[in-house]
Nucleic acid binder design. Structure first.
Lengths: 175, 175
DNA sequence: ATATGTGAATAGGTTCACAGCC
DNA sequence: GGCTGTGAACCTATTCACATAT
């Protein structure tokens, strides 16, 4: 398949796609294009997704439980292995399979299972403290849904997903 | 308050904050800093958030209903006024106040209420069709949670929030 | 003939350094 | 003296143009 076809599918320009791919190697054949199967496998490896990544979720409130139900992650090589909440006993929908544990168990769990990724869905006011706990335990990357700026050491990576900001961004463009 | 203090709170550098603000005007006082209240109001106006924006949600599945419960939007000047689903009658948690209507009513609703913003939480396979319906009805901006590349006319703005991609992004950085 | 890989050109965004105002 | 506003310098990312490989 040509970079042109792949780019159309991905919603980018062909040159962009080629340039990006070459940062990690040469996976195409000149005059022919890319072998989709091989390319797909190579990308998975580069992205560190070859093996199933265990993920924990902190903050099993509205948004948190919604994400626990959502299984779009599994398909992409992630498995939410446990959730943590300051009120682990609160009644929650029974169709949630992931165990909800008290925050006190977070440290041991992360260390024992070697968890490196965490999803943070606590209220903004609790976010920094929760992040500290996660980092202390050894988590290396946080997907933060809380509306708060997290201050973390250099080695820890944070990705912010603020839904309100996303809407504000759009609101600016509508007339 | 100084740009330095504001920048620390926002997690950016002071010069960045000042440069960004001046794209829309001069809101500070040299030697003094910014008036927080006035600045806040000005930004709201520039972003088009001065008045409550009605928003609709399309796709009341797991993620969709979770977002309906989430009220982080209201606080930022948005109100989800209705949800639409191909199966509007399906049983849903009763604590959801927003009416869930059938897709057939989407066009009329959008036109009557003058809705400009939509949140799209349908499965990837249904996303393009749903987007077409929205645009047809007059929606100008879409916050897309579906894992799909939407093809839309120039005048329509799309913001993609792909949770799996966010995690992949982080996975690349953990070792 | 066709499509990749890539140096060069261009565009876009961030940081610096300091003039201007309080 | 203190802090904003901003042109210039710098850095990063995208696009172009074409040499290179099948």
């Amino acid at each position: 398949m040509s970079s042109d076809a792949l780019a159309t599918a991905a919603g980018v320009k062909p040159t962009q796609l080629r340039k990006d791919l070459t940062y990690f190697g040469q996976w195409g054949t000149r005059g022919l294009g890319y072998n989709v199967e091989g390319l797909s496998r190579s990308i998975s490896e580069v992205l560190g997704m070859a093996k199933l990544q265990p993920v924990i979720l902190v903050g099993a409130g509205q948004l948190g439980t919604a994400l626990l139900r959502y299984n779009g992650f599994t398909k992409e090589g992630f498995e939410v292995v446990a959730a943590f909440d300051s009120d682990a006993e609160r009644k929650r929908p029974r169709d949630i399979r992931v165990p909800v544990l008290p925050m006190t168990q977070l440290g041991d769990f992360v260390r024992e299972r070697g968890v490196k990724l965490a999803i943070l869905t606590v209220p903004g006011s609790a976010a920094q403290q929760a992040a500290n706990d996660l980092i202390q335990a050894g988590v290396q990357a946080i997907l933060n849904f809380a509306p708060a700026v997290l201050h973390v050491p250099e080695r820890v990576v944070v990705n912010n997903v603020d839904l309100a900001i996303q809407l504000e961004n759009l609101a600016y463009f509508v007339k």
